[in-house]
Each structure stands twice: as C-alpha cells, then as structure tokens.
Simulated scan of single mutants.
Amino acid sequence: MTTPSGRRVTMVAAVAENGVIGADADIPWKISEDFAHFKATTLGHVLVMGRTTHEGIGRPLPGRTTIVLTRDTDWSAEGVRVAHSITDALELADELLREQPADRQVMIGGGAAVYAAALPYADEQVISEIPLAPEGDTHYPEFSRKRWQEVRREPRGGFTIVWWERVFACNAG
C-alpha cells in the first residue's frame, strides 16, 4: 500500500538464515558490499528507523532525511525528525516527500519493532539474505510468502539480495 501521498514504502534489511538481524544492538556480521547496497538503496529517500538503530549508528546517515521512531516523547537528536508511531512516521514522511521530487520513497531501515510495525504498510521488501546463522537477540518479522512475490534475486559476494513485492488480492465480486 502506498502512502497517502502515493509514495512507496520499502523495507530494507539484511537477514541471516535464522532470521537474526542483530545482536546486542549491533549487526553480527560485517559485509561491506551489503552496507554499500543499503546506502545505494536508501540514498536520497526518507529513511525511518528506530531509536536503538539510530543510536547504534551514532549519527544521521548522509544523503537521507531520517525519521527516528521512538516511544520516548522526550527523546531528540540533532539532524533527525522524531515520530512516536509508525503512522505518525509515515504521515511525516508524506509531508517531507510532498516537498521533494516524485521519485523519492519511504525506506524502513530497522530495527525489529520498526520492521514489524511497518510491514502492513510496505509495498516492497529488499532483503539481503546472509548465509549465516549467528546468535542474536533481534529478528526480522515473519511474513506470509502467500502475500509477497519474489520478483528479483541477485547473488552478490557472500550474500543474495531478494526483492519482494506485495501481492494484492483482487476480489472478482
């Protein structure tokens, strides 16, 4: 489902075979090509991420407008916008996108709670499949493969990027 302004919502994540995306507020692998892919995919777009993810990075990512999602109404950080629910974040993104070129999108960049909250609003998932099964305390949300269609698969050095598009059911009456 696109946002009210007509923009697409895309979730971008690196996910291990066991669903792990994080361990102790960090990524349990270092694959520079995947970091480059995340940058290339999200650059120039509005990026929504959780407070813990933002704090783990330590700064706003350059070339993106960042919205940090947090329940803490007193939290703020320099260089980012703040929202307190996924719907507030998407509404803020719509406002920001109305001021920008039409090809910009809303990108969801984690962590687990933000991915889970955004999943019902997402049009696309761009998932780097990491062929590892590390210990971790943060997992990507489960999603029904019946509601998503794999539209592209691209092997890279040490991982594979998979693009999923939401399948919209059509009622014939």
Rank of each mutant, 00 (worst) to 15 (best):
V106E: 06
G58C: 12
D34M: 06
V114L: 04
R98T: 11
G109I: 01
D74R: 10
P131V: 03
G63F: 10
I57Y: 01
D74Y: 00
P101M: 14
A40F: 04
G63W: 07
A83F: 02
L132M: 09
T42V: 06
H37M: 08
G136D: 03
P60R: 09
W29I: 14
G44I: 02
T138L: 09
I130D: 10
D123R: 13
F35V: 11
P131T: 09
G110Y: 02
R51P: 07
A122L: 04
T52L: 12
I86G: 00
Y115V: 14
D72N: 15
S85E: 13
I27V: 05
S85D: 04
T41V: 13
L132N: 15
R81I: 05
H139K: 12
A133D: 00
V106L: 05
D74K: 05
T65C: 03
P62R: 08
R71N: 05
G58L: 07
A113P: 14
D137I: 07
V106M: 03
L96D: 01
V48E: 12
F38A: 00
E124Y: 01
I67V: 13
P134H: 04
V68A: 01
D26R: 15
D26V: 12
T66D: 05
Y121R: 11
F38V: 07
V82R: 00
R98D: 15
F38M: 05
P28R: 11
F35C: 13
T42Q: 06
A25S: 14
Q105L: 10
L69A: 02
G79C: 08
A89D: 10
W75H: 07
H139E: 10
A40H: 13
A77E: 03
T52P: 13
A113V: 11
A25L: 10
E91N: 13
A113K: 14
V48P: 12
H45P: 04
A118M: 06
D88S: 00
I67T: 02
G109K: 01
E33V: 10
I86V: 10
H84Q: 07
P28L: 03
L43M: 14
A25I: 00
D72F: 04
Y121D: 08
Y115C: 15
A25D: 14
V46C: 10
R71S: 09
E91C: 12
P62I: 07
T87H: 09
A83S: 05
T73A: 12
A36D: 11
V48D: 09
D74F: 01
M49H: 13
A40L: 05
G63Q: 06
A113T: 15
